[in-house]
Computed example of a mutant assay.
Amino acid sequence: MSLPILNRKLVLESAERSPDGAGGYDTSWQPLGTLWAEIKSGNGSARGENALQISRVPLKITVRAAQVGSDARPSAGQRFREGSRVYAILAVTEQDSRARYLVCHAAEEVAQ
């Protein structure tokens, strides 16, 4: 196994919900910190949704491991931001038995 090349600076964000006063809620994203990552893309797909064409690309985002419970450890439901690009984290696994790196299975969705 070769070591990942962590050459992309990503901001890890977590969703925060607050009441909207009408029985629902608003979601805002709060930054938790910056992580260096390697991003590898998979095969993309496209589908129509509400008169928009949505492109979806699965990604494997590798970051250094952090202890369980740490704000620096990504988890499903969070997201990475790289400028205007947003990557939703779907699942997180350890890359190897020594748990030196985490692989975040993510997706970037872009409306066209």
Score class of each variant (00 low, 15 high):
42 G>L: 03
28 S>C: 01
18 S>E: 08
42 G>E: 04
39 I>V: 13
33 G>P: 09
38 E>R: 07
87 Y>T: 01
51 A>I: 03
4 P>E: 07
95 Q>E: 15
10 L>H: 08
102 L>A: 07
17 R>S: 10
100 R>I: 12
5 I>E: 13
10 L>T: 09
19 P>F: 03
50 N>T: 05
27 T>I: 13
2 S>Q: 12
29 W>R: 01
6 L>K: 12
53 Q>N: 08
19 P>N: 02
5 I>D: 14
65 A>W: 12
78 Q>F: 04
93 T>E: 14
27 T>N: 01
106 A>S: 14
94 E>H: 13
83 G>F: 06
102 L>G: 09
16 E>K: 06
87 Y>F: 13
87 Y>L: 07
78 Q>H: 05
63 V>L: 09
50 N>M: 07
83 G>C: 06
84 S>I: 14
25 Y>V: 02
69 G>T: 10
46 A>P: 00
105 H>W: 01
38 E>F: 06
12 L>P: 08
70 S>M: 12
19 P>T: 04
61 I>V: 12
27 T>W: 01
94 E>N: 13
44 G>E: 04
35 L>A: 12
101 Y>S: 10
88 A>H: 02
88 A>F: 03
17 R>L: 09
2 S>T: 11
22 A>W: 13
13 E>Q: 15
91 A>L: 05
42 G>N: 02
30 Q>I: 10
86 V>L: 04
51 A>P: 00
5 I>K: 12
29 W>G: 04
90 L>C: 04
2 S>C: 05
62 T>I: 14
27 T>S: 00
2 S>A: 13
28 S>W: 00
50 N>A: 12
76 A>Q: 07
7 N>T: 13
26 D>H: 02
94 E>V: 11
66 A>Y: 15
100 R>S: 15
14 S>M: 05
62 T>Q: 08
76 A>T: 07
29 W>Q: 02
